[in-house]
Design a protein around this nucleic acid. Structure first.
Lengths: 190, 190
DNA sequence: AAGCGCATGTAAAAGGTTACATGATTAC
DNA sequence: GTAATCATGTAACCTTTTACATGCGCTT
């Protein structure tokens, strides 16, 4: 699902929101398959087993009358501790869009300043990458090089610009509703 | 670099633009590492060897006076044929942003109608995904569910909207300069 | 001769996907 | 009883990253 052994921590974060079975997780993630992909059962179940072996989650077999029984996984105290440590780490330089969305998904477990810190880090990263793309585009625009490369650079530039706009707007919302109750987090999609 | 054995065809496409060494490819891809990631040498060199074994590329050792010698890889006729077949396949449903950028990069080797077809396919895919995200966002907005999920959905919505705008603008440019010489392909990044 | 940037390569380990196998329960 | 959905799991295969190993050629 993602390199850097992120996948397991992400699953742990989902289980911190509410206990779920493997099947539940798969369905839940289906709606954002486009952004982060939903893991295959062939990687999902072994990941849950690994978390279990590490004592970060517990299982409970939930038998229901009308449907086959399922295994409900719940996070443990040790799991919450490990998750906290993971979420506190700064985004590593080569983080992808996927990595960022995974952190975003877990924002509900984080304090507002921590969420803001993650957004700021992403902002810095995207701004840097945008500058790289722009420089590259200007350098290659002189010589009539490959049109495919120009297309790709232009596309990347458009996405980076849109992402920066969203980050700024969302960061603004966070600052606005700073310590007010639950925090509003209105939509900023244009 | 990407599942679906795409990586090798992508490399082949780069070599169709101009002969390069492994080191060259790595540097070339470095500027769009953010979008598609640049492969590690540990996967790059074996991929080139595989292309060589399949007869899709040839090598030539280029000795230069001032620097260590390098292996220049060039595409063969068989390689061009295989590449054509690959590029003609429609984008598969679960294609990621990365997959799309890889096709975009190779646009220079494709005819204008083919490029347009790829963009249209991507447009349809993104529009569908955008609708999924929007529905999900409205469904969950009633119940005060997790704020992280709302953030992620809103983020995805913003990106999808921006991508659709870029696709429409670029598709417009392609139609405009339809059969005029080299095709302009101006920038549409906002 | 030591160190650095260029350049290529291999092996071990990790992780994921595909395909297969299994079983419960409901609906026909 | 047979198909369909729900639900979990395993194994073979493929690819990638990580870490290491090697060597050329220039500079100090």
């Amino acid at each position: 699902m993602a390199g850097m052994m992120n996948a397991r921590f992400f699953l742990l974060g989902l289980l911190d929101q509410r206990p779920m079975s493997g099947y539940d997780i798969k369905r839940y993630l289906k709606s954002l398959e486009w952004l982060i992909g939903s893991p295959s059962f062939g990687s999902l179940y072994p990941s849950l087993h690994a978390l279990l072996d590490q004592g970060l989650v517990t299982v409970e077999i939930a038998s229901r009358s009308d449907k086959p029984p399922r295994k409900q996984y719940s996070i443990t105290d040790a799991g919450r501790l490990a998750l906290q440590e993971w979420a506190d780490r700064p985004i590593f330089p080569r983080a992808t869009l996927k990595d960022f969305v995974m952190v975003l998904m877990l924002a509900g477990n984080l304090t507002l300043p921590r969420v803001a810190a993650h957004l700021e880090q992403r902002r810095a990263q995207v701004a840097t990458q945008r500058a790289v793309l722009e420089r590259e585009l200007h350098e290659t625009s002189g010589q009539m090089t490959d049109s495919g490369e120009r297309l790709a650079l232009d596309y990347g530039l458009a996405l980076a610009t849109a992402e920066l706009a969203w980050l700024d707007a969302t960061l603004g919302d966070l600052a606005e509703g700073d310590d007010s109750a639950t925090g509003p987090l209105q939509g900023n999609a244009r």
